[in-house]
Simulated scan of single mutants.
Amino acid sequence: METTLSLADKSGIADARRRAMQMAQSLGLAERLQADAALIVTEVATNIIKYAGHGEIILKGSDEGGVSSLDVIALDRGPGIANLGAACSDGFSTGGSLGAGLGTIARHSTLFDIYSVAGAGTAVMARIGEAPAPNRPPFLIGARSTPKLGQDVSGDAWAVRFAPDMLWVALLDGLGHGPLAAEASRKAVNIFMDANSGITPADLLRNVHLGIKSTRGAVMALAKFEPVNATLSFAGVGNIVSIVSSGDGTQHLLSTDGTVGYNMRAVRPTQTAWQQGSVFIATTDGVSTRWNLNRHPGLLSRHPSLIASVLHRDFARDADDATIVVVKAL
């Protein structure tokens, strides 16, 4: 459940508030949490209009830790926040807004995160819901996916699977656009979800290759995270860009040429270290291949949903389906 609201003038603030309350209600959140959603969305929408002129708010359901909640992500390309510490303190009013301030928004959220660079915009994330379960897995996951401009259906798809002591992530880009591309990705996801968790990424890619031959095919990347062994196993076919960033630097995970389901060549698996603080990022070709983190100091310290949303804001192209998936090790 996800919707994106574009904001261009004050008339969009009331609609954003109404849509947030409706989604909170449909997620089964309590009335007090619905009120929190209304306050938070009104504040961030007002700030977008006042300081950036236009922007967008993403509303999506989340079940991180097995608890239903509403994520609010507000994005703009405005001047940024000069004094982020003051802006996040209670009692700080942005002027012309509710006067709630980012500090109050944080207190009405179960999770709050913000990223702002002078001259390059602001991104705010607030999660509204009950406190997460204490035994949640040692991963944080975030993604942002949009179809080609003018299309209702995206040919991209992504999926995650939790298994004992490990996490699987798949990212696909069906060949072309629209329903036929989506069909190829959907069939691949079904095979991925039904696979034995003990299989290797390379072997699973081969299974998918055989299973989607009746479709137009897709490019695909698979990552298997095993914190117990401190390893990440990866295999990819096609032009999906994947990296792992850690304290030791950034490593590119290479995919082989070809199309899964059509002309897949020999798969070359990769294994690398996966440790606390490691961040995995994978993007389809709707995200400019020139994307990098040089323009975004400190971004990797933020929540994966915020990382994905900021990179999508700055590097996604309307002329193609665009997806970013981010995993962070806790």
Rank of each mutant, 00 (worst) to 15 (best):
V44T: 14
K60P: 01
D36K: 04
A86K: 13
E56Y: 02
D71M: 11
I81G: 01
E43C: 07
E43N: 11
Y51W: 09
G85S: 13
E64T: 01
S62R: 13
G53H: 06
R77W: 02
I57F: 10
A35L: 12
H54D: 10
I57R: 07
A87R: 04
K50H: 08
I40A: 11
I81M: 06
D63T: 08
V72W: 06
R77H: 14
A37S: 15
I48G: 02
I40Q: 02
G80N: 14
A45P: 02
S68I: 05
I58K: 06
G55N: 00
V72I: 15
A38Y: 06
G53S: 08
E43P: 07
R77N: 14
A37F: 04
S68C: 06
Y51R: 11
D76A: 07
A82P: 00
D63V: 05
S62T: 15
H54V: 01
L84Y: 01
V44F: 02
R77G: 11
Y51T: 07
H54T: 08
E43Q: 09
K60Y: 12
A86F: 01
N47T: 10
L70Y: 13
L84F: 01
G78M: 12
R77A: 14
N83P: 06
N83R: 15
D63R: 10
T46N: 06
G66R: 10
R77Y: 04
Y51I: 03
L59K: 06
Y51H: 13
T46P: 00
N47L: 02
D76I: 07
T46L: 13
I57Y: 07
L39Y: 08
P79F: 09
E64D: 10
I48S: 02
G85T: 13
I58V: 14
P79V: 11
L75M: 11
E43V: 06
A82V: 15
D36T: 02
I40M: 04
I49Y: 11
G65C: 07
E43T: 05
T46C: 04
I73W: 05
G78I: 13
L39R: 10
G78H: 10
S68A: 14
K50S: 08
A38I: 00
N83E: 14
A87K: 03
L84I: 15
D76F: 02
G53Y: 08
V44P: 03
N47C: 06
L39I: 08
A35D: 14
A37W: 03
G61I: 10
C88Q: 15
A45Y: 03
L39D: 14
E64K: 02
A82Y: 11
A38N: 09
A86G: 00
E64A: 13
C88M: 15
L75W: 04
G61D: 12
G66H: 06
P79Y: 08
I40S: 05
E43K: 09
I48Y: 02
V41L: 03
C88G: 13
V72F: 09
G78C: 12
T42Q: 11
